[in-house]
Design a protein around this nucleic acid. Structure first.
Length: 223
DNA sequence: ATAAGGATGACCT
DNA sequence: GGTCATCCTTATA
């Protein structure tokens, strides 16, 4: 623990300290109770939190999310009930739901609400904090590529963190031993802005996208 | 603006 | 079994 006279580390320094000292257990994981709530509430609360990807200890701040409300949300994968693809949405809250889209990308979600209630939150953009060289390699980008090119989109962030359906679907994101974890951060989230969701064709008017205003890593130039 | 790309589920036979 | 429309995108021009 830092002494009282030590300045509070920046989030980047904190993330690096975790990675280098493997003191990740000192990061307070988000609890299952955090996710046992309506998706729009969880989506808003996830902004500013940190996603840890191990092994390799990549870390990134959540800057953009979307809520999907379950079977009564026409734009949700659960709109037509439980299928082999979306069944983790029907399990306990706080678990990763990964699906493939457009044949070449994956998207990462986290389940919300109690078992049987398939709400979820889609991760749309991250601000990379640690492990940028590995993210660049995963994305096939040059060593000097801007950090905000790495994870500013739902497909990009999965590629940057090496997330696939095979290696991450169903992972418990509240378990400290999970390769995909969500942890608290005291860093102030800044102003939250809300808009309709992106890339959907149904329920296009619902204000269920949440992002940090002015953050350069938000997708689509923060439209 | 739009092409690429493949998994998925709905809906047949 | 099979076929087909759909899809919460990205990288090009």
């Amino acid at each position: 623990m830092p002494s009282a006279s030590t300045p509070k580390p920046t989030p980047v320094e904190a993330a690096e300290a975790v990675a280098e000292n493997d003191r990740s257990s000192s990061w307070r994981p988000l609890t299952p109770g955090f996710f046992n709530a309506p998706p729009e509430q969880v989506a808003r609360a996830l902004l500013g939190k940190i996603l840890l990807r191990g092994p390799g200890q990549m870390a990134a701040r959540i800057v953009e999310t979307e809520a999907y409300l379950g079977e009564h949300d026409p734009a949700a994968h659960a709109a037509s009930g439980c299928t082999p693809r979306n069944r983790v949405l029907y399990g306990p809250p706080g678990h990763a739901y990964v699906y493939s889209i457009y044949g070449m990308h994956f998207c990462l979600n986290v389940s919300c609400l109690p078992p049987g209630n398939p709400g979820c939150v889609l991760f749309r953009a991250l601000e990379p904090l640690h492990g940028l060289p590995q993210m660049r390699r995963n994305r096939g980008l040059a060593a000097h590529a801007s950090p905000c090119l790495l994870a500013s989109g739902p497909g990009k962030l999965c590629q940057a963190l090496g997330i696939t359906r095979a290696n991450a679907n169903g992972a418990d994101m509240t378990d400290p031993r999970s390769p995909l974890r969500l942890v608290e951060d005291e860093f102030p989230s800044g102003e939250v802005r809300i808009s309709p969701r992106i890339g959907i064709r149904k329920a296009v008017d619902l204000p269920l996208r949440f992002f940090l205003a002015g953050n350069p890593c938000v997708s689509n130039r923060g439209r």
